[in-house]
């Protein structure tokens, strides 16, 4: 392949010895960018987009959180007036903020826990299934994973329908000691799941776990496949129980995988919006707000209060930033970034 003699000399120095040798034989090097500029030139368009659509808006959000931005400012372009930390004070005084924070945190705790547990168990299960069966389960999981979040909301809203929903039909099948109909009713039929906060979040948790466990399962499966089988054989020879093997071999080796999966799940579940928006029927049910919904409703429901919406968004972003710091550290530690 490289038997030809030189034709064109490369512009710019690169670190291959062969290339450098070639340069001397060549004609005058073609005019070209100095090599240190090249990566920056390649990066520039992407960086401009990220700066314009991410960094600058973030900065604007922080500025707006200290301003009053209402209908006048939006419609007529009146320069917004600064209110200092007034927006934050108003929000922290509002019970709605605390109920939204409670909903966000409790939902994240339950959804992340269930997602990780179910996902890990399914990953372990797939790893032990035969070839055909494991393929079937993986394809099934993919189907759940692929459903658009809005469709997830729609599907579970329908499954949880008071009259025609399958969930109530199924609960009617169960014996009373296991699932007694609510409030002395004779059957579950007609029970509205999506009116009160707690049932809404029960359905939301099931829906989100249903959609997110496949990602965990597939990642855990990939992790399991990377563990050398010799380790398991050695454990078997030593008479280790299955549980002990899992705890002493599988878990420690998969720890970095779990760290990343946990952080990612926390980030996603803290931000959940679409599914809740559909299940709760828009922004009418204020008690069911989580922080994203609250920020959105504050900013866009009339009368728009974009300043305090931005303030809520700042608080949510700060919480997520702490979680992300752990994530970034983990990724850097795994030397994934080199």
């Amino acid at each position: 392949m490289s038997n030809q003699t030189s034709t064109i000399a490369r512009g710019g120095g690169n670190h291959s010895a062969a290339g450098r040798r070639r340069k001397q034989t060549g004609r005058t090097p073609r005019k070209s960018l100095p090599s240190w500029v090249i990566p920056y030139a390649l990066l520039l368009p992407g960086l401009l987009i990220i700066a314009g659509l991410l960094l600058y808006p973030l900065f604007q959000m922080i500025v707006m959180s200290t301003q009053k931005v209402g209908l006048r400012e939006i419609r007529r372009g009146t320069p917004p007036e600064s209110v200092g930390l007034g927006n934050f004070e108003t929000i922290l005084d509002n019970d709605l903020f605390w109920s939204a924070l409670r909903n966000t945190v409790l939902f994240a705790v339950f959804a992340v826990t269930f997602t990780l547990v179910v996902g890990t168990l399914v990953g372990l299960l797939i790893n032990r299934l035969g070839k055909k069966m494991s393929k079937l389960v993986i394809v099934g999981c993919m189907a759940a994973w692929a459903v658009p979040p809005v469709a997830v909301g729609v599907i579970w809203r329908w499954l949880a329908d008071a009259d025609a929903g399958i969930i109530n039909w199924f609960l009617n099948l169960l014996p009373d000691w296991l699932a007694a109909p609510p409030d002395g009713q004779t059957s579950w039929t007609g029970y509205p799941w999506l009116n009160d906060v707690l049932p809404i979040y029960v359905i939301l948790t099931i829906a989100v776990v249903w959609q997110s466990f496949p990602f965990i399962a597939v990642s855990v499966l990939a992790g399991l496949k990377s563990i050398p089988s010799e380790l398991y054989e050695a454990a078997k020879v030593d008479g280790s129980s299955a549980f002990r093997t899992f705890w002493k071999i599988t878990m420690p080796l998969l720890k970095p995988v779990f760290a990343v999966l946990t952080v990612l799940s926390i980030i996603w579940d803290f931000k959940v919006f679409n599914q809740l928006f559909i299940l709760a029927g828009g922004t009418t049910n204020r008690e069911a707000f989580n922080l994203s919904m609250y920020a959105y409703a504050e900013a866009f429901r009339s009368p728009p209060k974009m300043g305090s919406g931005a303030a809520i968004a700042v608080l949510l972003t700060l919480i997520l930033l702490v979680v992300t710091a752990v994530y970034v550290r983990q990724i850097v530690k795994q030397e994934d970034i080199r």
């Binding site: 390649l42 990066l43 970034v328």
Partner: peptide, 30 residues
């Protein structure tokens, strides 16, 4: 390429995935 600012850029990419859409939505709308 190895260049100055590469690792900060990569970290920026990671952090960007965390930003909630509702936060950017308000300034982007305006």
């Amino acid at each position: 390429f190895r260049f100055k600012g590469r690792v900060p850029f990569l970290i920026l990419l990671l952090v960007a995935q965390m930003v909630p859409a509702e936060a950017l939505l308000i300034p982007l709308f305006l």
